[in-house]
Amino acid sequence: MSTTERTRALRRRMIVEARRATVEHGLHGYTIEQLCETVGVSRRTFFNHFASKEDVVLGIELHADVEAFERYAAGGIVSSDLDPLGSIVALAIDQFHRVGIDRADEALVRQVFEREPALVAKFLSATDVQLARVTDAVRHRFGWGDPDDRRARLVTEAAAGLLKVTADTFFADADSPAFDALLTDNLRLLRAAITTGQDTTP
């Protein structure tokens, strides 16, 4: 196992254990020290990867997005054939897979949000916090260098709206499809609504 794989596995263990502890005890019912003891890491190691207890529960890793945005801006991570909106959706799906929002622990994530509803708002607001950086990455990827060019922000805001509606549905409906499938379908519906006003699925 490579160093990168070991680091990813360690982060994953911290995230899963934090979610389990939150479901069992509530966010304020355990300490970071207790979490570190369970996982077998030091407090210093914890803060090398996560800024807070809330962030580890949500899978928000320190500096992880910086590299991803740089690679995306340079034309990487997702297919170069995708249009701007499609590329942001593909990037979001890639990032959600990386942090662990998928069917494998969907029930655990739902239980976390049921136990700590305030975390839903933090999860949704994470998109807003990243908005400026995503906009810059889109601007660089598609060569929209003029600061007065509004296209990058318009596309990013549209993607943020897609993510919010998708997250609202995903976490509210236990029978909803997987997050990436739901997001992809919402992108299709948005395109159909804008171009024809109708869902053209046979």
Rank of each mutant, 00 (worst) to 15 (best):
A178Y: 04
D173I: 00
K122F: 00
D128A: 06
V23M: 13
D55G: 00
T4D: 15
V134F: 06
G86T: 04
L91N: 08
L182I: 10
I101N: 06
A137L: 14
G143E: 06
A132G: 08
L154I: 10
A73H: 09
A159K: 07
G59N: 03
T200K: 11
Q95W: 02
H140F: 08
I194T: 09
P117L: 00
R8W: 08
D105M: 07
S125L: 04
A132W: 10
R115V: 15
G76Y: 15
T22N: 07
I101S: 04
E24S: 12
L62Y: 00
K164V: 12
M14W: 01
S2E: 05
D65T: 01
A158P: 05
V66F: 06
T166H: 02
S80F: 09
A92C: 09
L119T: 11
P117Y: 00
W144Q: 02
V112W: 01
C36I: 12
A132Q: 14
S176I: 00
H140E: 11
R19M: 09
G197V: 09
T45H: 08
A158E: 06
V99G: 05
R150N: 01
I60V: 12
R151N: 12
L108D: 13
L183E: 10
L187S: 03
Q198Y: 05
V99R: 11
G100N: 13
T166V: 03
K164E: 02
L124R: 11
D105K: 07
D136F: 02
I101L: 10
F113A: 05
T156E: 08
D180V: 04
A121W: 00
I15V: 04
D185Q: 12
L10H: 12
R141P: 02
H140A: 01
A104E: 08
R44F: 10
R141I: 04
I77P: 15
S176G: 05
I15N: 03
V39E: 03
F96V: 06
S176W: 00
D65C: 02
A160S: 12
R151K: 14
P177C: 04
